[in-house]
Each structure stands twice: as C-alpha cells, then as structure tokens.
C-alpha cells in the first residue's frame, strides 16, 4: 500500500475509528492512543489489504481488539464509566426542573447500556448510535449476520427489561 492509498482510504475513516475507540474506552487519551496504534498496525499489515473485502470493518476490528486489550490491562472499573454519565448533556430545556429530570433519565439509560456485557454494548453502539448495517457489524465483530441479530435482540431485550423496571417501579 502506498502512502497515497493510505491517505485516501484509511485516513478518512480515522475520526470514525477514534469515535469507536472513545465509546469503548470512554477516555480521550486512551482513545487517541488506540487510534494511533490501530493506524500503525494497518500500515504494518498493508500486505493484507489486497485480500480484504471491507477495509473499514477490518480497521474497526483492530480498534476493538486493541481497546479490549487496553480494558483488560487497565482493569477499568465500571464506576469510571458511570462517572462519565454525569458529564452527559441533556437536550436543551428552558425549564431547569424538566432539564434536570431529563438529565437523570439519560444518566439511567447510559448506566443501563454501559452495564451490559461488552459484546451487547458494542453491538448496540454500532447499530443504534453509529448506524452500521447488520453486515458491517458482522464484519467488525467477526460474527454471522444471524448472530448479530440474535445478540442485538438479546441486548435490546436486556435494555427493555431495565427500562420497564424504571417505568413501573422507578427502580434504577
């Protein structure tokens, strides 16, 4: 792969890779490091480029693997993720009371999603936030399309049950 090809095909997806890493790690510095490492790895494995069908999915897969390694090595605590929930911004509300209430609801949803197992959480993020197709998710996570749908169904079901608890019992 020439430098031009790297610039034209890999560099444009860099922001996407960074966003993905950021969502997985919830840490700006770590996401930067992982993105940089992933770019290096792509460059070093340029020989494989020819046999790849989906370059973006391959890059995303590298980012995910690196991020998971980082998570394991650092033994991220769940609370680190939860702490971030406080910094989330709810949509603009003129009424401070309503805004606070909505912020609270958003924090709860954030906690529910981040409490999911990594696989479920990643699938939900890739589908519902990043807007990837089932096939793209299958490529990124090295699953079949049916497995993606099954896991997505289970992940959404888990979120739904938690949401129902909030709705009915006001439980967190």
């Amino acid at each position: 792969m020439s430098l031009e090809l790297f610039h034209s095909q890999v560099m444009p997806i860099r922001p996407k890779l960074y966003r993905f890493a950021y969502r997985l790690l919830n840490n700006e510095q770590d996401a930067q490091d992982i993105t940089q490492d992933a770019m290096l790895r792509v460059w070093n494995q340029q020989g494989r480029m020819a046999e790849l069908q989906n370059l973006e999915a391959w890059c995303m897969r590298i980012v995910r693997n690196l991020a998971l390694d980082r998570l394991k090595s650092k033994k991220y605590r769940n609370t680190e993720l939860l702490d971030k929930a406080d910094t989330m911004q709810a949509s603009h509300q003129s009424n401070p009371h309503l805004a606070a209430e909505q912020q609270d609801v958003m924090d709860r949803v954030h906690r529910i999603i981040h409490a999911l197992p990594e696989k479920y959480r990643t699938i939900i993020q890739l589908r519902d936030i990043d807007g990837f197709s089932y096939q793209e998710i299958a490529d990124i996570l090295e699953l079949t399309m049916n497995e993606v749908k099954t896991n997505l169904h289970r992940a959404r079901k888990a979120v739904r049950e938690q949401l129902q608890n909030i709705q009915v019992y006001g439980l967190q």
Binding site: Q89, A90, S91, V105, M106, R108, V109, I113, V159
Partner: peptide, 8 residues
C-alpha cells in the same frame, strides 16, 4: 428515553 439517548 432510549431513543432520546441514542439521538443525544
């Protein structure tokens, strides 16, 4: 709330 969260 879930869809609002996704949009946010």
């Amino acid at each position: 709330p879930m869809f609002q969260y996704f949009r946010l």
